[in-house]
Amino acid sequence: MYGLKLDWDPEPETKCFVLQDYQGLEPRWCPGCGDLAVLAALQRLVRDEQIPPEKIAVISGIGCSSRFPHYMKTYGFHGLHGRPLPIASGVRSRRPDLDVFVITGDGDCCAIGTSHWIHAIRYNMNMTVLMLDNNIYGLTKMQSSPTTRLGKKSNTHPRGTILGPLDPISVTLSITNASFVAQTVDWNPPHVLATIRAAHEHQGLSFVRIMQRCPHYTPEIWTEYQQDPSCIFLLDHPDGIPVDAGVARLFENKVDHDPSDLPAARDLAALDEVIPIGLLYRNPDAQRYDLAMHEGLDMPLDDRITAAQAEVDRFLI
């Protein structure tokens, strides 16, 4: 931890990273945008963990939230719409030394990037995936997204959406080899930070859906949940997201949920009208594709050359 490290560090010249070391360009999100809360939380997390900025890769797709890497002073990759997960997986496959964060949105992840979402969950490569879900396409000006609520009017559905929303948590929990699935809300920063901290600690792919509003297009979507916290189940368990007293005070419905219980997690996710927040599922033993990919990475150059030579020899006549 940051404070401790200052005291304990035996090398006085060793640099201690402060928040500014992780702060990139001035965010250009709208005032009141939930992305700002997530940005602040991530910067705090990496500061607390004292991860050297150059050892962090923040990889995003396209959309409002995908501007995220520009606001971090780390290595960043602002790529293509829907495709941050294959890129992040590629980075992870060759660079086990880097901390990989993926920033995606409800359109980026659950619409154009759906196939990658499913397979990245299955690959379970060590990275932290934050899905910033504001229920709408903001950058392209208020088109319905897969998570837009039923009946919500948008520019593509002026009479209201025809279909109800896709539930990203239920989907993720149903993907084989899912290893960490959590949900949080942007209006409770301590819970956001605690959730992404747990996600970062997890060895494997941690999927965190952060429910947030778009101040322009979906300012009202969470009002009832904010006004009536009983609509939220705060998941609590010794193996779950640590809940401090301040957070606990805000949510009257504390639900004991063992994150190793997948059927219970699926039941919670399937509840209508109620949102579970906290850690729904964790399986530290899920297979990790990145570990298999790293085999041979440390092979010395001389051995590689010798081995390649031997391969050529197989085709001698």
Binding site: G90, R94, G296, E311
Partner: peptide, 21 residues
């Protein structure tokens, strides 16, 4: 010889993965 083949979920992911590396 030290290396891996990644069989991706589709052609797009295949190049995305390579670009990440």
């Amino acid at each position: 010889t030290g290396g891996v083949v990644h069989q991706a979920e589709d052609e797009i992911a295949a190049i995305g993965f390579a670009i990440g590396a």
